[in-house]
Design a protein around this nucleic acid. Structure first.
Lengths: 343, 343
DNA sequence: TTGTATGCGTTATCAG
DNA sequence: CTGATAACGCATACAA
């Protein structure tokens, strides 16, 4: 009668299982299972009876056992690329993880986090075996580049449902999720250029093997064509240091610096400050670090949490058997000030 | 002879199971299991035979099934506290996750990531049930405060092996892992004070409900007592904004500002710059953000990746049945310059 | 040293 | 509508 809270260290108190519920409710295990999984063929009467016991015993089905048995309910892996300790990527990755993990809990999906570095020295079949051994059914890939052969093979293999962020892959079992990179680059540059009446723009592009690099480049090209602006493009490789160097060399002869990432924008801006000249700079991503540079800049705000939530929902869809598709998440333009981010 | 890569989209090839290995090797399933788990009683002969087949088939044991069966091999949860979008904590948490996940893979432990926000509105027994339903055997708690009643109950409940970072809990099933906070605060302050010949120090302490706050406070008190320095303590609450305000109000009458966190050090330093006065400032944590402030500061470098690796190893120990203990991880003193962190 | 049998907590397929 | 019962992939006490 007493719902013993089992004070302390009584070892053997096993978790309450479906069997206990069945016995307590006076029905068969299979019936309990049906109630739990909302099967149609079960009377309101027993349904209620079972649910009451479930409630009373505080029963929660064992997800591990379920996934062993079911083959449907599967786990998903987040494949994260950890960049050399630049905390810009830490911030972004953390938001990715947070978004996915939260949404996963709501959808009753089990999530494991995997870093590229953990699998980069494995062959494709080893990685596949590893994921299978973990009962992984779906994978979300963050920060994929053209050089990630392993991921390409994973997609081609077709063994897993996959969602790739910022990479243009769509097939029956693969979806892509991203913002409209071309449009975003166009928008943020346009705003900056109009505000400052620029004629000659220096564009610091991302790394060549990044899929977004080309799209963003299209955006700035389109703008410059439309507005008849002189465009100088340099490969900043998404590197703060590289951007700094490029700004030092080329910024003097232009009236603004458009960057394909916030980190590059920061590098460029710091260079300009050191050079003691002013040029408007705009970035891309909307990371908090932008608030620490001392100068405000326009940037594209990507909602990484949202992107990751959407990616997880998309993976869920795929795991229900739906076909892959391309999903675009909205973005916005912002200026990040120190006063806004300080807490 | 060819190690077939199984070209492409052959759908139905289920994962190779222990059964397949057994059949292929001409032994019983249990024998394979014994080989896999390095049991003593198995002849070198069959051991080799089995291992060959394992190799050839690329077999990897199904972790889910194993944990269902074994009751020993369990999963561990990382309980992460996500702070209001300050990317300082993002950086730290990312390193925590990275360290734990990597070490976990080596130790063949399955890891799930859980955020405080996901469980904060549950009761202790609900959380317990949730973790049990996930076959969680051990939990690492990051960023625990005195106010986290839930975690306290989890520890008291004794159902899980636990490792708490930066919190003083040790019992049979619980270990604590941290640096020597008192010593670290003493060291970094001493260095700063000696370098600048300070006499009056302003100390911006952490939040009262943080376990490290008291230890760090002891460190600075000890130093000031030894060196006969005038010490003014204010509660900065680990807040950059609060530190900024406190620096504005109190820094003028002191010759240096010792902070219990880098974020506060940044807030204080920015305030000093705005006030146009110079005071040496030192921080605590060693986050990369320190490189973006423009002024170099001494700080304590915590190796969060290492801390988390150690925590995971400790959890592993506990799960082997060993008793809880207190583990101290080394720290170091550094100055973080923009030139060092830019990549 | 090896094999047999049972169980872990579910889901799913059948009869009833 | 409900209840046995067989998987799921593996570990392990026990028998051979």
């Amino acid at each position: 009668m007493r719902k013993t809270i089992s004070a302390g260290s009584d070892k053997g108190n096993a978790m309450v299982s479906i069997k206990d519920v069945a016995r307590e409710a006076g029905v068969a295990i299979s019936t309990v299972s049906k109630v739990l999984n909302n099967y149609p063929n079960v009377s309101e009467d027993t349904r209620k009876k079972v649910n009451d016991v479930v409630e009373r015993l505080g029963f929660v089905p064992n997800a591990v056992a379920a996934s062993l048995s079911s083959k449907k309910t599967g786990r998903v892996a987040l494949l994260i690329k950890l960049n050399l300790g630049t905390q810009a990527s830490d911030e972004i990755n953390m938001q990715y993880i947070s978004g996915a993990v939260h949404r996963a809990k709501e959808l009753q999906l089990d999530v494991i986090t995997v870093f590229q570095s953990m699998i980069e020295d494995m062959t494709a079949s080893e990685v596949t075996a590893y994921f299978e051994s973990q009962s992984i059914k779906g994978i979300i890939v963050y920060g994929m580049t053209t050089k990630d052969k392993l991921v390409h093979k994973l997609i081609a293999g077709g063994k897993f449902r996959m969602v790739v962020i910022d990479a243009p892959f769509v097939n029956d079992t693969t979806s892509s999720v991203s913002i409209d990179n071309q449009r975003a680059q166009y928008d943020v540059a346009k705003k900056t250029i109009l505000e400052n009446h620029c004629k000659k723009v220096l564009y610091l592009a991302g790394e060549e093997n990044g899929y977004v690099t080309g799209q963003r480049l299209e955006g700035i090209k389109k703008l410059c064509a439309e507005k008849k602006l002189k465009l100088t493009v340099r490969n900043g490789k998404f590197s703060e240091l590289k951007a700094r160097e490029l700004a030092m060399r080329f910024a003097r002869n232009t009236d603004c610096v458009v960057c394909a990432s916030d980190l590059m924008a920061i590098g460029a801006m710091k260079a300009l400050i050191d050079m003691d000249i002013f040029r408007p700079v705009c970035g891309f991503d909307g990371i908090i670090l932008m608030g620490y540079v001392g100068k405000q800049m326009n940037t594209v705000k990507q909602d990484f949490v949202r992107i990751s939530e959407v990616a997880l929902e998309e993976l869920w869809r795929l795991m229900q058997g739906e076909k892959g598709r391309k999903v675009i998440v909205p973005h916005s333009l912002v200026r990040i000030k120190y006063e806004d981010i300080i807490v």
